[in-house]
């Protein structure tokens, strides 16, 4: 009984609780304001819309968890997307296209990590640079042209349904579940919390912190490869210069709202997923209530700052430890 009670109270005192409640409140508010909001159709549209951001936000979560930061996500996604599209245009079998895209994403993600670790440059500066480099390369290889005319098999990834849900949604759910399991049960997953929570203690334990960092950025790159594939396939076309240009802020917002701590050591799959849902819902809801979509950036920024403040208050409350 005592055990049970404490578990229940732990659920209600969980870091994710405020965001979940807040998401539900916003959902309720939009449902009242826009008659078409709370319909199965619209909800599945929202789900479809958030898959790409959702997958990238999970990568961002583990990067932030170890005290890092990745500004290059949008550019890397774009680069992976155009590579995938071009390989498909060149007639490669879809399976090979998928495989190569994931490999490219992973490699370039690891490159971010390597530059940070080997050149001793802060994460934010490295990814600020690679943000521009990746984007530039993507534009260069496509000669600023739209990449389109994909094969049916390729388009199939983003559009077809597996049962009730589309493949992208299923992929997102799968990634989220795998992440949740890994972060909870995989020893490496626990190490991420350790590295972010107390770096000195982690070093003293004999953990190879640089290698952890490179691996985290590699995983992040893998997810960006996946997201790039989905992007090209879902929209049926991709333009290197304009694809996912504000993705880094959207996903950072999702992670921070979801309870990730900018100094590292905290963050959860559940929180980030709800953070993504919240931002996706606001975007959709603004359109539904015929409000200007231009509010979106402002709200995203405000929400990021708000999340930072909440973070700070939680830290201050905990005191030093």
């Amino acid at each position: 009984m005592k055990q049970h009670k404490s578990r229940l109270s732990r659920i209600f005192s969980a870091r994710e609780m405020p965001i979940i409640v807040f998401t539900l409140l916003v959902y309720g508010a939009f449902s009242v304001m826009a008659p078409n909001f709370n319909t199965f159709n619209n909800v599945s549209v929202i789900a479809q819309q958030i898959t790409i951001n959702g997958i990238v936000a999970l990568g961002m979560t583990i990067v932030i968890m170890i005290g890092g930061m990745d500004l290059s996500v949008g550019s890397l996604l774009s680069l992976c997307g155009v590579f995938a599209g071009m390989m498909d245009n060149a007639g490669l079998p879809v399976a090979l296209t998928v495989l190569l895209t994931l490999v490219i994403g992973t490699a370039l993600g690891a490159l971010n990590g390597l530059l940070i670790v080997k050149l001793h440059i802060p994460d934010i500066i490295v990814t600020l640079a690679t943000m521009n480099i990746f984007r530039g390369v993507a534009v260069m290889v496509t000669r600023s042209q739209w990449i389109t005319d994909f094969s049916d098999a390729f388009l199939h990834i983003g559009s077809s349904k597996g049962g009730l849900f589309s493949i992208p949604i299923l992929l997102y759910v799968a990634v989220a579940v795998v992440f949740a399991v890994c972060l909870r049960w995989l020893p490496f997953g626990r190490l991420l919390y350790a590295v972010g929570g107390n770096r000195e203690a982690a070093v003293l334990m004999g953990l190879n912190v640089p290698s952890v960092k490179i691996r985290v950025y590699a995983v992040n790159g893998f997810l960006l490869g996946l997201a790039g594939l989905l992007f090209a396939s879902m929209f049926g076309s991709i333009q290197a210069a304009t694809a996912a240009t504000s993705l880094q802020f959207q996903t950072m917002g999702s992670a921070l709202i979801g309870g990730a701590n900018i100094f590292g050591g905290a963050g959860s799959v559940l929180g980030t997923v709800f953070g993504t849902i919240l931002l996706g819902m606001i975007k959709n809801g603004l359109v539904q209530i015929h409000a200007s979509e231009y509010w979106l950036d402002f709200i995203t920024g405000a929400v990021i700052l708000l999340a930072l403040l909440v973070n700070l208050i939680q830290l201050r409350k905990k005191g030093r430890c």
Partner: peptide
């Protein structure tokens, strides 16, 4: 509030840009 400048100004970057869109309606 003693939050890192880099992080704060990432947040305000997005917010102020949003303000630009709101003011001009694009």
């Amino acid at each position: 509030l003693k939050i890192q400048a880099v992080v704060v100004t990432i947040g305000t970057q997005v917010m102020f840009r949003g303000l630009c869109y709101i003011m001009t309606s694009g």
